[in-house]
């Protein structure tokens, strides 16, 4: 039994980290009043750049580039949503489509070959055609990784460890520090924050960039840390699951940690249940589980009283303009 729990838990952590990283950044953007629906597109751009740059320069460069690409992508959204005050839903979805198309183009066999040769002309021939990259190595923590059951928390790769640290740190910054207070006030009442001397534009821009950076990192993790095979559209809706996770977590980084592992666990369990003969009863129902959880979360949040109690940012999705 202990072995079984460990086996399920180890994979749950790996699956959940994708959602955790993506939703941590998104929480910051939404807390500042910006709905970043471009998450999916930014994630896949992160995955594509991590693929190409790992082949050319290795893991560290690849992860750095993925974060930079994520930040650059989110700047497009910041420009449209913060400065031009466009509809955030439309702008975000446009970003998603841009990311899906552009990543497919840049990582397609012929274009990828040209990019790889431009980045590193001495690259071996084999790397020009292959569609995988070396996976991030597992780094077991001595002694801790040998504890039964929870040992699997300490047999993961560097990005999973980073996500353990990032969740409490981001919670601390958001709720216990002055910049965090400014960020939340901008999302609640930008006019009041502005009157208090907080630069609404600047805060919203930074928050959007944080969400972009984390989404790029989530894409890099999905590819390098979980399933290292490049596939057009490989994020397959994970960005949207992360978006619903943000609501489920009530814009709280620590609850996002739990929610991410809940979503990850549902996905892992569905393939175990099939082997107990349960999948044959209604396979589509099992495949639906993660989305059912997401819908339940969305419904709960849409109820007004619940919304007030859990503290949804009051100005989420509303552009701010000083003249009004």
């Amino acid at each position: 039994m202990i072995e079984w729990i460990e086996s399920v838990l180890a994979l749950t952590l790996q699956v959940g980290t994708v959602y955790l990283l993506a939703s941590l950044g998104e929480i910051y953007a939404e807390r500042s009043g910006i709905l970043n629906l471009g998450l999916e597109g930014i994630m896949i751009m992160g995955a594509a750049s991590s693929f190409i740059f790992t082949l050319a320069y290795g893991h560290l460069a690849a992860i750095t580039v993925s974060i930079i690409v994520g930040v650059l992508m989110s700047l497009i959204l910041a420009l449209m949503a913060v400065y031009m005050r466009l509809n955030q839903t439309v702008a975000g979805l446009a970003l998603t489509m841009l990311g899906l198309g552009l990543s497919g183009f840049l990582a397609s066999p012929e274009v990828r070959k040209v990019i790889l040769l431009a980045l590193n002309p001495s690259l071996p021939e084999k790397f020009l055609a292959i569609q995988e990259a070396p996976k991030l190595p597992e780094i077991p923590v001595p002694t801790l990784s040998e504890i039964p059951v929870i040992g699997c928390f300490f047999r993961q790769n560097a990005l999973v460890y980073f996500s353990y640290a990032a969740a409490p740190l981001m919670w601390f910054i958001l709720f216990k520090t002055r910049p965090g207070l400014s960020l939340r006030s901008v999302g609640e009442n930008p006019a009041a924050a502005d009157a208090m001397g907080v630069s609404v534009f600047k805060v919203r821009c930074v928050a959007t960039m944080v969400s972009g950076g984390f989404a790029g990192l989530a894409g890099a993790y999905l590819f390098l840390g979980f399933q290292p095979f490049w596939q057009e559209g490989l994020t397959a809706g994970k960005g949207f699951i992360a978006l619903s996770l943000v609501i489920l977590s009530t814009w709280n980084p620590l609850r996002a940690l739990l929610g991410a592992y809940l979503f990850g666990g549902v996905e892992v369990i569905q393939y175990r249940l099939q082997l107990f003969g349960l999948g044959a009863l209604s396979p589509y129902l099992l495949a639906m589980l993660p989305y059912l959880v997401a819908i339940a979360a969305l419904v709960a949040v849409s109820i007004g009283s619940v919304r007030k109690r859990i503290g949804a940012p009051a100005s989420l999705g509303i552009p701010y303009s000083r003249e009004e």
């Binding site: 079984w4 086996s7 994979l11 393939y271 175990r272 082997l275 396979p283 589509y284």
Partner: peptide, 25 residues
């Protein structure tokens, strides 16, 4: 043992299904 993923293309689902077959059965 057979584990279905209900997709023609789904590398991360194939991974979860394969790991379940190895570790569960």
């Amino acid at each position: 043992h057979v584990n279905w993923i209900f997709k023609w293309v789904g590398p991360d689902d194939a991974r979860k299904a394969a790991i379940a077959l190895i570790e569960e059965k």
